[in-house]
């Protein structure tokens, strides 16, 4: 990459905007995933009986929906990220690249 192109991108306020928006978003989602997973693991480690609580008096325990929730949340979080990245971030990025190459 030549220095001129680099300087123009770095000076573009849209680039700063993209970088800060994207990193804030991806760290927020990462922390959400970590919180969900480690929240689950800590309950498993410190209070396993909680997950063994019967739901509605039947055999199905609280642990079943909670476990399924962790799996589904992983998928949903990736979907949320991909949706915003494919539209908003990619559009912003396209603008940056076009402006830099003018």
């Amino acid at each position: 990459m030549n220095d001129d192109l680099m300087r123009r991108i770095q000076a573009n306020p849209r680039f700063t905007e993209l970088v800060s928006k994207r990193s804030r978003f991806s760290w927020k989602l990462s922390l959400t995933m970590l919180a969900i997973y480690y929240g689950f693991i800590l309950v498993v480690a410190f209070d396993p009986k909680l997950l063994g609580t019967s739901l509605a008096g039947g055999t199905v325990t609280l642990g079943i929906p909670v476990g399924i929730f962790v799996i589904v949340s992983a998928f949903v979080l990736t979907g949320i990220y991909v949706r915003r990245a494919n539209s908003e971030f990619d559009a912003l990025n396209r603008q940056i690249v076009e402006e830099a190459q003018q």
Partner: peptide, 12 residues
């Protein structure tokens, strides 16, 4: 579940 939760992190 442990084998799955690394994937979102890889993406983000």
């Amino acid at each position: 579940i442990g084998f799955l939760v690394g994937w979102p992190i890889i993406l983000f």
